[in-house]
Amino acid sequence: MPTTDLGTSPLVGFDLDMTLIDSRPGIKAVYDELSARTGADIDSDLVVSRLGPPVEMELGHWFPHADVPAMADLYRSLYPQIAIERITLLPGAAEAFAAVRDRGGRVAVITAKNAPDAGRHLDHLGLHADEVRGRAWRTGKADALRELGAVAYVGDHVHDMEAAVLAEIPGVAVTTGPSSPEELEAAGAVRVVTSLAEIPGVLDAVWPPRVVA
């Protein structure tokens, strides 16, 4: 894969679900509750095997098109009480944020999840992001990356890598989500790692730590 100089620009973007957090237990529990309340036969194990797209896209597999907006509202109303406590950090998440800041950089979380719930996760898990952008997917993520002046985007999904390509910045892919290494490379990832624990090493290669006198 090609190497890309990240330079000294200040901000690195991160996806949230299955990049920074293992959101499967919480999301599964919300879909199970949604199924119980509506009578819809939702396979929540299948749902959490393909996380990434906005909730409306997933709900479209289980409800008539006309019902999706209301089901999305119900899902989001249930989410804070059911999901937040069940979700944990993925290995290396805190260290990846620290590695960016050690280099004088800032961190943004850019996610398809709504921003309030993204913020709740970060607060609950003790992560601080300088910027949080929610309800962003593929081209929406690219727009946010450009607006924020991001120098790289870290994500687990092929559409995360496509967003980085559209924003004309390096995409660093982590294989903790549903996309395979081959799919991530084909989508434009300049680096593919198996864990966020490898992110400091990736940054070492292209963006040395800041020297403090």
Rank of each mutant, 00 (worst) to 15 (best):
I82Y: 13
V174T: 06
D102Y: 07
I84Y: 08
G105D: 10
E168P: 01
L148V: 00
A118Y: 08
L51K: 13
V132N: 01
L59E: 01
A115Q: 15
V68W: 02
M161S: 09
E185N: 02
A72Y: 12
P178C: 01
L166D: 08
P53L: 05
L78D: 01
R133I: 12
W62E: 00
Y153K: 00
D102S: 13
A136S: 13
A70N: 01
L166Q: 11
A186F: 09
A142G: 00
G126T: 11
D160F: 15
G134N: 03
L59I: 09
G149P: 00
R135C: 13
L127D: 03
D143T: 09
I110P: 01
V172T: 09
E131V: 15
P80T: 15
A136M: 15
M71D: 03
R103Q: 05
R133V: 12
A152T: 13
I87A: 11
P116M: 14
R120W: 06
H61E: 06
A167L: 03
A152P: 11
P69K: 08
T88L: 07
L184A: 06
P91H: 09
M71R: 14
I84R: 08
G104D: 05
G52A: 02
E162I: 09
I110S: 06
A115G: 14
P69E: 02
L90V: 08
V107C: 14
G140V: 02
L89T: 05
T88K: 14
V172M: 15
E168H: 12
E95N: 09
M57K: 05
A164H: 03
P64R: 05
